[in-house]
Amino acid sequence: MTMTSTETRSVVIERDFAHAPDKIWRALTQPHLIAEWLMKNDFVPTVDHRFTLTGDWGSVDCKVLEIEPQRALAYSWDAMGLESVVTWTLTPSATGTHVRMEQAGFRPDQQQAFAGAKFGWQKFLANLDEVVARID
């Protein structure tokens, strides 16, 4: 039995926003608003709906997994050999809303697949110009 075969890692970002949950919920679930901060998309707030996020570097295949209006939203996030799940949790606070985003399911072998020859060096360098343009 190996521990590593089931071990996954997560990325968690938490932030307090001075805005009400319903407003943040709209930004997370309305396609034209999602496009403003994340990527172009054909999101529909329905469980099992498949949608695509499209960036200038490629696209992400997603499926809505969970919807609890103004509280929780989860969708799968598959891109470049990665299979992960993004979960948003909104909690009302005294000053607005606490927002937690967890992207879970990074397996060590997925990481290697990404860093390896297939999606590593050449493609990475070829995309650098675009990446830098986005940082500015």
């Binding site: 990325v11 901060w37 990074f106 997925q110 990404f114 590593g120």
Partner: peptide
Amino acid sequence: PLLDWTSQMTEFWESRFDDLDDLL
């Protein structure tokens, strides 16, 4: 660090959160 998924995605989401804040 750039080829590490978790550190790369952390940076990606931090910057998305900034844009989300701008939008709000």
